[in-house]
Amino acid sequence: MRFAGKSIIVTGAGSGIGRAAAVAFAAEGGRVVVADRTEGAEETAAMIGAAAVPIRMDAADEADVVRAVALACDRFGGLDVMFANAGISGGLANLFDTSVELFADVLRVNLIGPFLAIKHGAPRIADRGGGAIVLTASVAGMRSGAGSPAYSASKAGVINLAQVAAQQLSGSNVRVNALCPGLTETGMTQPTFDYAREAGKLDRVGRLNPLRRGAKAEELARAALFLASDAASYVNGQALAVDGGLSSSHPVTRQEYGKTAV
Rank of each mutant, 00 (worst) to 15 (best):
G214Q: 06
T192N: 09
Q190M: 14
A196M: 06
S233N: 09
Q238H: 12
A215M: 10
G237E: 05
L208T: 15
Q238T: 14
A228N: 10
V205W: 02
Y195Q: 14
P191D: 03
D230M: 05
L227W: 09
Y195N: 10
V205E: 01
V235S: 03
N209Y: 07
L227V: 12
A223V: 14
A228D: 09
G214M: 10
E198Y: 02
Y195I: 11
V205Y: 00
Y195H: 13
R207Y: 15
R222A: 15
V235H: 03
Q238K: 12
E219W: 00
L227K: 10
A223W: 11
A217M: 02
G200S: 03
L202C: 01
A221G: 05
E218N: 10
A215N: 10
A239T: 08
G237P: 01
F226I: 13
A199P: 07
R222K: 15
L211P: 03
L225A: 02
G206Y: 00
A232R: 02
E219Q: 02
G206P: 00
F226R: 13
R204G: 10
D194C: 02
R222T: 13
A224P: 14
R204W: 08
V205L: 04
A224E: 08
G237I: 00
R207K: 15
S229A: 09
S233R: 07
S229D: 11
P210V: 11
L227D: 04
G237C: 07
L202K: 00
P210K: 04
A199V: 00
S229L: 07
A228L: 07
Y195T: 10
V205C: 00
T192H: 11
R204H: 09
A215Y: 01
S229V: 09
L211C: 08
A224V: 14
